[in-house]
Simulated scan of single mutants.
Amino acid sequence: MFPFVLCAEDGAPEDMAVAAYHLDAGNLEMGWSHLFRELRMVGNVRAAFTESRSFAFRKEPKLYRGVFRKSSEGAVSLAYTGAEAMAVHVGADYAYYRKSGDADVRRIPESSSRRGSLALFPSLVNLDIQALAQTYDLYGDFTSEGGWRLQLVAKPESDVDYERIDLTGTAREVNGIDLYKSARSSIRIRMDAAEFPEAFSEAEVADYFFEPEAEHAMQP
Rank of each mutant, 00 (worst) to 15 (best):
L124G: 02
D161G: 14
H89L: 00
E51T: 00
D15S: 13
Q134E: 15
A133W: 05
L179R: 04
R188W: 00
R115V: 02
S201N: 10
A206T: 06
R37D: 10
A133I: 03
F68W: 12
E173T: 09
G11N: 12
I189G: 00
E84V: 02
A85L: 02
A75D: 14
R58P: 00
A95S: 15
A154K: 15
A19K: 11
G74H: 08
F36S: 05
A171V: 04
L6G: 05
V160I: 09
F196G: 03
S72Y: 04
V125I: 14
R40C: 05
D161V: 00
E73C: 08
A83I: 05
P212C: 03
A47F: 04
M218F: 00
H216P: 00
D178E: 05
D137A: 15
Y162P: 06
R164T: 07
A47D: 05
E9K: 11
D161T: 06
H22R: 15
M41G: 13
V153Q: 15
L138A: 06
G91C: 07
N44M: 07
M191Q: 08
A19E: 14
H216V: 02
P61W: 04
R114I: 06
R46L: 12
S52K: 10
G82Y: 06
A203T: 13
K155P: 08
T135G: 05
E29V: 09
K155E: 07
F68K: 05
H34Y: 11
N44Y: 03
E211L: 12
S158G: 08
A131V: 10
D24M: 05
L28S: 07
T135I: 13
V76G: 03
V42D: 04
R37V: 01
A193Y: 02
A183M: 00
Y136P: 02
G43W: 06
R184T: 13
Y97V: 01
R58Y: 04
D15T: 13
P3E: 01
E213D: 12
V42M: 11
G26T: 06
E110G: 02
E215Y: 02
F57M: 03
A19T: 05
L35D: 09
N126T: 14
A75T: 08
H216I: 02
L179F: 04
D102F: 10
P220V: 02
P197L: 10
D102S: 14
E213G: 03
E163C: 11
